[in-house]
Design a protein around this nucleic acid. Structure first.
Length: 498
RNA sequence: GCGCCGCUAGCUCAACUGGUAGAGCAACUGACUCUUAAUCAGUAGGUUCGGGGUUCAAGUCCCUGGCGGCGUACCA
């Protein structure tokens, strides 16, 4: 039992729903046949396994044992058909009174409900209509379902699908398939990195200081230490300490937490993959992302292409490289290089992009880019070389002091990854933190905070390093053609029902 | 945060300008020995999201609170 609802309240004895009462009555009757919640059941096959072994099984006439959930009941007098659903699909079973005897058949027909889990043994055959079926010679209850399943003809409401994921998974095969695919996708990413000598590590979720991204944190408290702690918004600063320590390639699949709004593409907790490689720069990271995405598209798409939201996305040719300011110029016709804040602001207003007074020049450029350019980036594109103010942990650009060596990967109009040549000069990093503190003082509560402990690590000396963060939930959305993050999270954040 | 829309039986949905809350599936009783959204006959099932108001009369109109969806803002 979990205490999800907070403090335990007095459990008021509520009258049982008539449908539950009816099923309890059947449960009691079934209990007279044997333990209604037995400990285990030996299966010889799964539903898919039966189909695969059909020829052999029908030739030998072997008795098979399968288990699953009753998804429908179709009775015709003294016979009954019902589809049984297990982890791999469905298999029909067929019972006859002549085989089971009157008593056993009546129990089977009258005491079992939709949703019950049963085990059956019998021989495999094909019905007149050609459906693979197990002819039941014996059966037992494995667990009684006391509540009705949702109606089978119509889709469950979106709310119910997210709130009661177990029902969604029972009723909707495409939902089961989506989460299988999520697992396969994450598995591929993990192997891809391990194959390239990246070491998987785990770093703190509870952090005394949060950093590595611009976002508001969740705050909590450690009683024994009487210390304020934050749930991490990123694990970047810890992973780079490991690079300092000589673990030259590291990655982590990390749950991050950001105390921001929720919408179609945002959940307060989400999964990132961050990886860092010593002696790499952001060009090396672009190669890494390109290779990974090409592989994923080959594995989960068709000929290196996937379709998403009506777009055909092609990863076979790699990512287009688009410099941030070139992208802006392409869309707006304005070359923003060398313009001051006031000039930039005027352009933004003319283009209909709202500007708030606390926004600096670079922030306004970013707002314009997000509004005007990003939605047009459908085919795989690396947006690179961003203005400096937006990226306090990225190394200055080797050719242009106003920019940093950074890229973001865009596909279908949304960002899937973010990467830098990591800033490893502790003097410069200290100045950047100081600038962030100024922004914070001016009321930007998402600005990053000074992290002396991290600076001390940098002062020991960090090699040139390439870093990358990939939003794994969005990656899954991309490869499952989902437009809402809640559909790729098993348990998306929801308000309590009552 | 804000705006718009929604919330009716276990589930999916009806109910016109305010006038006796209905259907399908699920459930129950019965018929039917190859069904597959099985079929057929019958039965039962409701605090119309909560609270307040207007009215002879409220699922329907008004106010307020809750939850959800979509859009929008910040963010990944």
């Amino acid at each position: 039992m979990s205490g999800r609802g907070g403090p335990v309240s007095e459990n008021e004895p509520q009258p049982l729903h008539r449908l539950v009462e009816e099923r309890l009555r059947k449960l009691e009757a079934l209990a007279e046949r044997g333990e209604p919640y037995p400990y285990r059941y030996d299966r010889t096959h799964t539903s898919a396994g039966l189909a695969a072994a059909e020829a052999e099984l029908t030739a030998s006439g072997a008795t098979v044992r399968i288990a699953g959930r009753i998804m429908a009941k179709r009775s015709a007098g003294k016979t009954i058909f019902l589809p049984l659903q297990d982890g791999e699909g469905r298999i029909q079973i067929y019972a006859r009174r002549d085989d089971l005897g009157e008593q056993d058949y009546d129990a089977f027909k009258k005491l079992l409900d939709l949703g019950d889990l049963i085990g059956v043994s019998g021989k495999l055959f094909r019905t007149n209509t050609g459906e693979l079926t197990v002819h039941v010679s014996a059966w037992e209850l494995l667990a009684k379902s006391l509540r009705p399943l949702p109606e089978k003809f119509h889709d469950m409401s979106l709310e119910l699908r997210s709130r009661k994921r177990h029902l969604d998974l029972i009723m909707n095969p495409e939902s089961r398939e989506r989460f299988r695919r999520r697992s396969a996708l994450l598995d591929h990413v993990r192997r891809f990195l391990i194959d390239r000598d990246f070491l998987e590590v785990e770093t703190p979720v509870l952090q005394p200081l949060y950093g590595g991204a611009t976002a508001r944190p969740f705050t909590t408290h450690h009683n024994a230490l009487d210390q304020r702690l934050y749930l991490r918004i990123a694990d970047e600063l810890y992973l780079k300490r490991l690079i300092v320590g000589g673990l030259e390639r590291v990655f982590e699949f990390c749950k991050d937490f950001r105390n921001e709004g929720m919408d179609r593409t945002h959940n307060p907790e989400f999964t990132m993959m961050e990886c860092y490689a010593a002696y790499w720069d952001y060009h090396d990271m672009m190669d890494l992302v390109e290779t990974l995405m090409r592989q994923l598209a080959e594995k989960f798409g068709v000929d290196g292409r996937i379709s998403y939201g009506g777009h055909e996305l092609d990863f076979s040719g790699g990512f287009r490289r688009l410099r941030f300011l070139d992208g802006l110029q392409e869309t707006t016709g304005v070359d923003f290089r060398g313009l001051d804040r006031e000039e930039i602001r005027a352009h933004a207003e003319r283009l209909g992009v709202p500007v708030r007074p606390e926004m600096g020049a670079d922030k306004i450029l970013d707002a314009m880019f997000g509004e005007l350019v990003e939605p047009t980036l459908i085919q795989p594109t690396f947006v690179m070389d961003h203005p400096k103010e937006l990226s306090p942990l990225a190394k200055g650009h080797r050719d242009d002091p106003a920019l940093v060596e950074r890229f973001e990967g865009f596909v279908a109009g949304f960002e899937i990854c973010n990467s830098f040549s990591e800033l490893n000069d502790p003097r410069e990093q200290r100045r950047r933190f100081a600038d962030q503190m100024d922004l914070r003082a001016k009321g930007d509560d998402e600005a990053q905070v000074m992290d002396e402990d991290y600076l001390e690590a940098l002062e020991i000396g960090m090699p040139p390093t390439g870093g990358l963060g990939v939003g794994l939930d969005r990656l899954v959305m991309l490869f499952t053609d989902c437009n809402a993050i809640r559909d790729v999270l098993l348990f998306p954040a929801m308000r309590p029902e009552e």
